[in-house]
Simulated assay, not measured.
Amino acid sequence: MVAYQILGCRLGQAAVCVRMMSSNTAVQQSAKLAGKIAIVTASTDGIGLAIARRLGEDGAHVVVSSRKQTNVDSAVAELKGLGCSVLGLTCHVAKEQDRQNLISKTLEKFGGIDILVSNAAVNPAVGGVLDCPESVWDKIFEINVKNALQLSQLVVPHMQERGGGAIVYISSIAGFQPMNLLGAYSVSKTALLGLTKAVAHQVASDNIRVNCVAPGIVRTNFSSTLTQHPAVYEKILETIPLGRIAETKEMAGLVSFLCSSDASYITGESFIAAGGMQSRL
């Protein structure tokens, strides 16, 4: 049996916090994104899934996507089990028809788009930037940068119809401090910092805010190549003042904030969440 407990809410407040408690789960939900419709790409595991979960817990209708139907089904089941309003779709962001379908099915199900979190990224090769084959370079920049732009071009008209919106690009600490083993990937993540500025300036008059989150080393399958070897892992920890790598939920809270009215005067900015790793002055 699920019990509901109102936590410290006052009359007149827009956000109402509800703690849902059962024998198996304890999920805190707020209404700060109530009624908002959010698309999160590459969102069936890792950082993307954590972001989708947090947006759903904060009241948004969430659209999750992945290239594989089995991954989509698993994520949808997990989020529905938490009480989230969710739609799951297969989407390879490099395929135009998949991108179009992602938008059309979202509109069909929920009637609009308020939030885009562009999280899809690849790194098919390890090595320095000068060692990167042309085909690998093209693939990295297609997925990590060009497709992020193309999705933005698709969602902005629908955000304009709703009087505003929020776009968040997921970059990386490597966009500020390139990693030798992730040469081309690092450059692509730097490009997202510029894309954030450019798009933010163009859509500011439409009340669409565009920001960027640059995670440090986060415990995901994607980062396992950096953390699976004890010697390499110890070297990584030496660069992190907090002395640990991040959990995915620690990125999700920042994204939710940037999508909410709490960040209503923030646009064109990039936020580093890297445990104190060297980034910028």
Rank of each mutant, 00 (worst) to 15 (best):
A148Y: 07
K197L: 10
S171C: 12
V203A: 05
V187M: 14
P133N: 12
E134F: 14
G165D: 04
S205A: 15
V210S: 05
A214N: 12
S152R: 00
V129Y: 11
D138I: 09
F176T: 03
M159N: 07
C132V: 03
I208C: 10
N207W: 04
E134A: 15
D131V: 01
G163A: 09
N211G: 08
S186I: 06
I143M: 08
G216S: 01
C212T: 01
G175L: 06
V122Y: 08
F141K: 04
V210E: 00
A184Y: 02
G127E: 07
G128V: 10
Q150L: 15
Q150K: 13
T196N: 05
A184L: 00
E142V: 04
L182T: 00
V155T: 11
K139C: 11
G183R: 02
A200I: 01
A148L: 06
C212E: 00
L193M: 14
F176H: 12
Y185Q: 09
N207M: 10
Y185M: 09
N147R: 11
A174Y: 13
V136K: 08
L130W: 12
N211K: 07
R209D: 00
S188A: 11
G127P: 09
Q153G: 05
L154W: 03
L195W: 02
G163I: 06
P215N: 05
G175H: 08
I173S: 08
E134R: 15
P215K: 03
